[in-house]
Computed example of a mutant assay.
Amino acid sequence: MNTMKRTIRRDELRKMVPLADSTIYEMERNGKFPKRFNLTSRCVVWDYDEVVAWIEARKEAANDVEKAPGPDVHQRKTRPTKKAA
């Protein structure tokens, strides 16, 4: 039984992965994002399952990342002022 793979175009990819095109292309070149491929000379697509797997892997990696501590507000020399509207 041959199952058809779902593909997504750039507009759907942008909805799933809110990164700039240049960031996605850079990550593709570095092997850190699923590679796109051409269906025709004018139609570029990504494999949906590969993109979903990448997102899930990022979620898992995010759970393992230690967050940077916030700034120590007690070390401020001045208080920030609110600008008049």
Score class of each variant (00 low, 15 high):
A68D: 13
M27S: 02
R79K: 11
N38E: 05
V73F: 12
R79S: 02
R29W: 00
T3W: 04
A57E: 15
R14D: 13
T40R: 14
A84T: 10
E50D: 15
E28C: 08
M1H: 08
W46S: 00
I8G: 07
L19A: 08
Y48S: 03
R76M: 12
S22A: 13
N38V: 00
M1I: 06
Y25M: 12
E12K: 12
E60D: 12
D49I: 00
E60H: 03
D21M: 03
V65P: 01
P34D: 04
E26D: 09
E12S: 05
H74N: 15
T40C: 10
E60M: 04
L19E: 08
V51C: 00
K82A: 03
R6D: 10
H74W: 10
R42Q: 11
A20V: 01
A62D: 08
R10M: 11
A84N: 07
M16C: 05
M27Y: 11
R9T: 02
T23Y: 05
K35P: 03
T81A: 06
Y48C: 01
K77T: 05
R79V: 00
V52D: 08
R58E: 15
A85L: 13
E66G: 05
A62Q: 12
P34Q: 08
V73P: 00
R10N: 08
R79T: 00
A57L: 04
R14P: 01
W54K: 06
N2M: 07
V65L: 08
D64V: 10
D11K: 14
R36P: 01
I8A: 05
N38H: 11
G31S: 04
T3A: 09
G70R: 09
R10T: 00
T3Y: 07
W54H: 11
P69Q: 13
Y48A: 07
E50Y: 02
V52R: 08
T23Q: 15
P34A: 05
W46G: 02
K77Y: 07
P34I: 04
A57V: 02
K15R: 14
N63D: 13
Y48P: 02
I24S: 06
Y48T: 05
D11F: 03
Q75F: 01
V73E: 13
A53P: 00
D11H: 11
G70C: 04
M16N: 01
R58M: 09
S41E: 14
L19H: 10
S41R: 15
V65T: 06
A62T: 06
S22L: 09
E12Q: 13
I24V: 14
R36K: 13
G70P: 06
R9V: 00
A62Y: 03
T78D: 03
R58H: 06
N2A: 11
P71C: 04
K59Q: 10
C43K: 14
S41V: 13
D64F: 06
S22R: 13
V45R: 12
I55N: 10
A85R: 14
M4Y: 09
